[in-house]
Amino acid sequence: MYQIDNATVAASQPPSTAQGATGYFTDGNPASNIPATIVPAEWLNSVMMELMNAVTGSGQTLNKAAFNQLWTAIQNASQNTGVTPPQFDNTTKTATTAFVQRALGNYQGARILSAPTVLNAADAGRSITLVAGSSATLPPYSSVPVGSAISFLNADSAAKTVTASGTDKLYLPVLGGGFTTSGTSLTMLAGDSVTFVATAAQWEFVQGTALLSNSSGVFGASMTATNGFQKLPSGLIIQWMAVSVSSASGVAITFPIAFPSASFTATAMDGGLTAYSYGISSGTTTGAVINARQGATAVTGAGFLILIGH
Results as ranks from 00 to 15, higher is better:
301 G>T: 03
159 A>G: 06
95 A>R: 15
181 T>G: 05
128 I>M: 10
231 K>L: 13
264 F>Y: 15
84 T>N: 00
263 S>F: 11
15 P>S: 14
71 W>E: 14
251 V>H: 04
276 Y>F: 11
164 A>T: 03
49 M>Q: 11
95 A>N: 13
237 I>H: 00
4 I>P: 03
265 T>L: 08
166 G>K: 05
73 A>C: 09
131 V>F: 01
186 L>A: 01
48 M>F: 06
169 K>M: 10
91 T>M: 07
112 I>C: 03
152 F>I: 01
244 S>Q: 13
32 S>H: 08
131 V>D: 07
3 Q>P: 00
19 Q>L: 15
278 Y>S: 06
93 K>M: 13
186 L>M: 14
102 R>L: 11
174 V>P: 06
281 S>N: 05
5 D>H: 11
31 A>H: 10
275 A>Y: 10
190 A>G: 13
271 G>W: 10
308 I>Q: 14
126 R>Y: 12
57 G>L: 10
221 A>P: 04
118 V>G: 07
308 I>G: 02
236 L>T: 07
289 V>D: 02
62 L>F: 11
121 A>R: 12
301 G>W: 11
279 G>A: 14
71 W>G: 00
211 L>D: 04
95 A>L: 14
99 F>R: 15
163 T>E: 02
224 T>L: 14
232 L>A: 15
66 A>R: 15
76 N>D: 11
245 V>T: 09
250 G>Y: 08
41 A>F: 11
89 D>G: 00
39 V>Q: 01
202 Q>E: 04
276 Y>I: 02
171 Y>P: 02
258 A>R: 03
242 A>E: 06
40 P>C: 02
51 L>V: 10
158 A>F: 09
296 A>K: 04
243 V>C: 12
290 I>S: 01
51 L>W: 05
197 V>T: 12
152 F>E: 00
33 N>D: 01
261 S>E: 08
256 P>R: 13
281 S>P: 03
110 A>H: 13
120 N>D: 15
187 T>L: 13
80 N>C: 10
310 H>W: 07
40 P>I: 08
17 T>E: 08
39 V>K: 04
188 M>Y: 05
137 T>D: 00
9 V>Y: 07
32 S>P: 02
113 L>F: 12
133 G>V: 04
19 Q>V: 12
158 A>V: 09
63 N>M: 11
37 T>S: 15
299 V>Y: 01
186 L>W: 06
45 N>S: 04
5 D>P: 01
302 A>L: 09
7 A>K: 03
84 T>E: 08
234 S>L: 10
188 M>I: 14
92 T>H: 06
83 V>F: 12
87 Q>M: 12
223 M>L: 15
276 Y>K: 13
218 V>G: 04
268 A>N: 01
177 G>D: 06
234 S>Q: 04
118 V>S: 13
137 T>I: 13
273 L>T: 15
236 L>P: 02
158 A>Y: 06
